[in-house]
Amino acid sequence: MLAYLVKRLFQAIAVMFAISLVSFAIQDNLGDPLRELVGQSVSDEVRQQLRDELGLNDSFLQQYLRFVGNALQGDLGTSYFFKEPALDVILKKLPATLELVFGATVIIIGLSVPLGVYTAIKPNSVASRIIMGASIIGISVPVFLTAILMIFVFSVELRWLPSFGRGDIVPVWGYWSTNFATADGWTHIMLPSVALASIMLPLFVRLIRAEMMETLQSEYVKYAKAKGIHPGRIYFVHALKNTLLPVITVGGVQIGTMVAYTILTETVFQWPGMGFMFLEAVNRVDTPLIVAYLIVVGFIFVVTNTIVDLIYGLVNPTVNLARMGA
């Protein structure tokens, strides 16, 4: 186990190193920090002097090491547009994105488990066929289109739910203000989280169904049935437990996809989170903010992926750790 842990951590560090190199290369090549500082009206000599002072003429390695050193101390540069530390800008936007992801995750878990189990237990029932048919349509509709169509139906035509923004939010702690404290906040988060969930839900329903059907064929389930254990207990305690293992791995892989989908969902609903901010930063060529976003997202992503892998190694006693670490 320890060897696996060390190998997994080593891989996480290697990926983080690659992300930092890419981010630094972007920072080095995208835009000119001097122009942002002094504008056009400064002579070449002064420019050269400023470049020396700022260390822009140092070697690539020196600049990279300084970049990493600063990043490790939480200094990811200052946003050109917001005129404040890029990390602060991102941390202010982070709660909005996390709440959106949280809402979507609740919907995904709450629906995919019962639907997946049901379609596995009764694969030939009419309801199962409808669920499976709906799931393939769900996979085929891009997340931004779901979002747009929901806005058209629920905001434009029916006027039931608001189409953009977060509405009334209540400060909780630090930068974190929540949507879940007021009715207005609830109505605002409803459409975005359903849209974000809509693309992942069919995937998980199909996955849980496939795994569950395989588990139901296994000897121990037959044995449990023969023993006369209540079907509900067999399905939800014995079978489901083993079904969820592969689901955890796939869930881990989907974290990166989720990041991309938050960018799309936030753009459609003008949700003031990290994804929307990233696209704005790109349009403004706000290099420090772009770089900071890459590092923060990369970090969240590497940490969650590592944790998911470790949990998988812990909960599954049959997993071959030596092979997984290889």
């Binding site: 881990g252 892989v253 989907q254 974290i255 990166g256 996809t257 990041v259 991309a260 989908y261 960018i263 990233f278 696209l279 790109v282 772009i290 890459l294 992503f301 992926n305």
Partner: peptide, 13 residues
Amino acid sequence: SFSTLMVAIIFLA
């Protein structure tokens, strides 16, 4: 593990 869409968005942006 890096989803295509995420890589593509960042690269194209």
